[in-house]
């Protein structure tokens, strides 16, 4: 993952949000994300992590504060086609084959279609031979791979992932994490990952933002850097455990 770019892909400044008048979810939240970097949001349950992703994606409007993507104010209409949001369960259309699902973003004019070809995408995620299969014929991990393939046929400036691997077993989570890193590195997009797993945050992200309990605010930002590539071998190393412990100690 590139760590030498200074231009910001995402800037969140003094962001506050409430559901109704009484339920304050976020208060004066600020953080930023450089181009081609991955930022992980961790924090206690209900601290507003998913809300942040939905605010950045333009599905919610902040009460106050500002969200800028690539230097411009994030208006929902302008975001269309440039930001991708992954929810907790892989969103595949059950009436389409895997190939049809991967082709989906290319059917819309606002999407930059200069990504990988469908064949390349299928090969990258290792789903050759399953192009004509329907989602119900695929395992959880394969569905996630199909979602990744869909991610790389289009060019996105920013990818938001909300607990993307929560429905997978431990082995598949690691495998998908590794695949995500490879894809992010090759397609060079910025990403925000919302996760409950500190290990996952440390493994995937360049920067971890620790949030307080509701109303969520930034407790700490921690930059993660490892020598050498981020492969599954890293998960067994002491430096990885040290980083996990650091983040854990920052949690409220």
């Amino acid at each position: 993952m590139a760590e030498n770019s200074n231009s910001e892909s995402l800037t969140v400044r003094d962001l506050s949000f409430s559901f109704g008048k009484k339920l304050k979810v976020l208060t004066n939240l600020s953080f930023s994300l450089n181009q081609e970097e991955v930022l992980a949001l961790v924090g206690p349950s209900g601290c507003g992590k998913t809300t942040i992703a939905r605010l950045i994606g333009g599905f919610l409007s902040p009460a106050s504060g500002e969200i800028r993507i690539n230097g411009t104010s994030a208006e929902k209409e302008e975001l269309k086609g440039t930001v991708a949001l992954f929810s907790q369960a892989p969103t595949l259309l059950p009436w389409r084959t895997m190939e049809g699902n991967i082709r989906l973003p290319l059917e819309f004019e606002k999407v930059d279609r200069s990504g990988a070809s469908i064949d390349e995408a299928v090969e990258t995620v290792g789903l050759m031979g399953f192009e004509k299969s329907y989602p119900d014929q695929l395992s959880g991990g394969m569905k996630q791979r199909a979602v990744f393939a869909r991610l790389i046929v289009a060019e996105h400036k920013l990818v938001l992932l909300d607990e993307p691997f929560s429905s997978l077993d431990d082995f598949s989570r690691q495998e998908m994490g590794q695949l995500f890193i490879e894809i992010q590195r090759s397609r060079k997009f910025a990403a925000v990952i919302v996760t409950h797993s500190i290990e996952e945050a440390v493994f995937l992200a360049n920067k971890v933002v620790v949030l307080s309990a509701r109303p969520g605010q930034v407790v700490s930002e921690h930059r993660i850097s490892f020598e050498g590539p981020r492969t599954r071998e890293l998960l067994k190393k002491q430096e990885f455990f040290n980083e996990v412990q650091k983040i854990r100690s920052l949690l409220p």
Partner: peptide, 25 residues
């Protein structure tokens, strides 16, 4: 499924496209 509607919305789908590609099926 709201996730499907949001996915298409993020791709810049028009209301008509969301209707034919998501709601009808």
């Amino acid at each position: 499924n709201q996730s499907v509607v949001e996915l298409l919305d993020m791709y810049g789908a028009t209301k008509s496209q969301i209707f034919w590609k998501a709601r009808i099926p």
